[in-house]
């Protein structure tokens, strides 16, 4: 379970301070699938980076399964990112000179998984995200945007994280692959009890999540659903 408590992140740009995240609080049950929508520049990526311990909040706290991130030293935060978080970045952020398989194996290498096991799991994951098998050993800077997106999602799933944070995961995918990725994410939340928080512009994706939040002027409001879920 994730509790977000009055989270604030401010940036100084010149003599102006901006607060893309300004007092955000919410809770997510374990295994839930939620989405965040909001205009470009509204602070969605900033919020996700705070939840994923990539960045530290100006104030407030994130409590994951009872552990406060604010109280953890850097080493523990690294461990948290490695073990508990699967991050899908908006710009994929794959290592360009490594193959798709090698990229997916990286988080497992950092977690100390043995080589044969990492290779097996990496191949399975790439199959799940429907990457062409012959492109598995291709360097990721020679893959298309959609293919890179799928490798990035497979990498996020590598260590079976408790929480998946996905920043626009279907933004570069065609409708059909996008649908498939959404199916994959919802099956993970259903079958593996993985908590998933997705940032998206995609209305159809947002509609498929159990809960939907809107980020506006630094504040998060939950959209009240009209009609039935799914």
């Amino acid at each position: 379970m994730i509790e977000v408590k009055d989270l604030v992140r401010q940036f100084k740009s010149g003599d102006r301070t901006i607060k893309p995240v300004n007092g955000v609080s919410f809770e997510l049950e374990k295994g839930s699938l939620a989405s965040i929508v909001g205009k470009s520049g509204s602070g969605k990526s900033t919020l996700l980076s705070l939840l994923g311990a990539l960045d530290k909040p100006t104030s407030g706290d994130v409590v994951v399964d009872g552990v406060s991130l604010a109280g953890l030293p850097d080493g523990k935060l690294t461990e948290y990112r490695r073990r508990d978080i699967g991050f899908v970045f908006q710009q994929f952020n794959l290592i360009p000179n490594l193959s798709a398989v090698d990229n997916v194996m990286l988080p497992m290498e950092f977690a100390g998984v043995r080589k044969a096991a990492r290779l097996k799991r990496a191949k399975e994951l790439l199959e799940q995200v429907q990457l062409d098998p012959e492109k598995q050993s291709r360097r990721t800077n020679r893959l298309s945007g959609g293919e890179q997106q799928r490798v990035a999602i497979a990498r996020a799933l590598a260590n079976e994280p408790k929480l998946i944070l996905a920043d626009e995961p279907t933004g570069n995918l065609d409708e059909q692959t996008g649908e498939h990725i959404i199916e994959l994410l919802s099956s993970l939340s259903r079958d593996h009890n993985t908590t998933i928080l997705v940032v998206t512009h995609d209305r159809s994706l947002a509609r498929k999540t159990e809960r939907c939040f809107r980020l506006q002027q630094g504040r998060l409001t939950e959209e009240v659903r009209t009609g039935s879920r799914r």
């Binding site: 994923g52 080493g75 990112r81 991050f87 290592i95 990286l106 950092f110 977690a111 990498r155």
Partner: peptide, 16 residues
Amino acid sequence: RREIGVLKAIGARNRT
């Protein structure tokens, strides 16, 4: 720099 950030974001230790 950015790539090092990626490695850290996916859980690489500083010493690695």
